[in-house]
């Protein structure tokens, strides 16, 4: 279990959120939802140590997460990567082995085999030698999921992985997330599309400059919570007896 305690993050004088406390369970896919600018990406980056928190700790089964950095895989939100970079799809997936290799060790046969297998898992084996810019958005996202597979991490965090990608890629990624979950890993997904919340997630965190609610998705994804966090209109659309997504 991942435990976040007293987490406060500020880019300037006003904090994005103060004293956030939340848990993420192993063997569950946890969604994080909240309006634009609610602090979802900030929460994740602070947990990963990519930005400095004013205060707070993140523990994984009681151990400081900083010592377990190589156990976490992170798929960033809409990377503004240089897509003309001279690197192939296969090489990008291989970089997933770098963390565990450490300095001065080069990826060998095991790394190549793992990368090939991961590419097959996301159905991109035939694209292995293609330059990274010659992929669609969905294919590119699958490449980063393949890299996360190669990392063999215990915790996988994805920030809005489904934005602007095709349905086939979304389905393929979701299938991998479920495999990971069934293998007992901790999966955290920042999500924007409220329609699919109860299909995709086991647990849910609602964030809006602080935790609104968290727990099993059936308890948290309620008309009341959505109205409080987003708007009454949205809540009405999502939870109306006719067109609601909830059972």
């Amino acid at each position: 279990m991942l435990t976040v305690k007293n987490l406060t993050v500020a880019y300037d004088d006003t904090p994005v959120f103060t004293d956030v406390a939340v848990n993420f369970n192993a063997g569950k896919i946890t969604g994080i939802i909240g309006p634009n600018g609610a602090g979802k990406s900030t929460l994740i980056k602070a947990m990963l140590g990519l930005i400095k928190a004013q205060s707070g700790t993140v523990l994984s089964d009681g151990h400081d997460l900083k010592q377990l950095q190589k156990q976490i895989a992170y798929v960033e939100q809409r990377k503004d990567l240089d897509l003309s970079f001279p690197i192939s799809v296969f090489e990008v997936v291989m970089t997933g082995t770098y963390g565990k290799l450490g300095l001065f060790r080069q990826p060998g046969k095991a790394a190549r085999d793992a990368s090939r297998a991961a590419l097959e898992q996301v159905d991109l084996a035939e694209f292995a030698d293609r330059q990274i810019g010659q992929l669609s958005g969905g294919q590119l996202q699958r490449v980063f999921v393949a890299r996360a597979i190669v990392q063999e991490a215990q915790v996988i965090i994805l920030d809005e992985p489904f934005v602007g990608i095709d349905l086939q890629s979304e389905t393929a990624i979701m299938a991998i997330l479920k495999q990971w979950r069934d293998a007992g890993k901790t999966i955290i997904v920042v999500h924007h599309d409220l329609n699919k919340v109860s299909h995709y997630f086991d647990d849910l965190v609602i964030l809006n400059h602080g935790i609104i609610d968290y727990g099993p998705v059936d308890d948290v994804y309620t008309a009341d919570n959505i109205e409080r966090t987003f708007s009454a209109d949205l809540s009405a659309v999502l939870f109306s007896p006719a067109g609601g997504s909830k059972k």
């Binding site: 990519l50 992170y74 990377k79 990567l81 090489e91 990008v92 770098y98 290799l101 080069q106 990826p107």
Partner: peptide, 22 residues
């Protein structure tokens, strides 16, 4: 030669390199 993979990954995707502790 010695830092090839580090130079590669920090040039291509520095955030990722940071997440694994480089």
């Amino acid at each position: 030669v010695f830092f090839y993979k580090e130079l590669l990954i920090t040039s291509f995707d520095a955030t990722y390199a940071q997440t694994y502790g480089l």
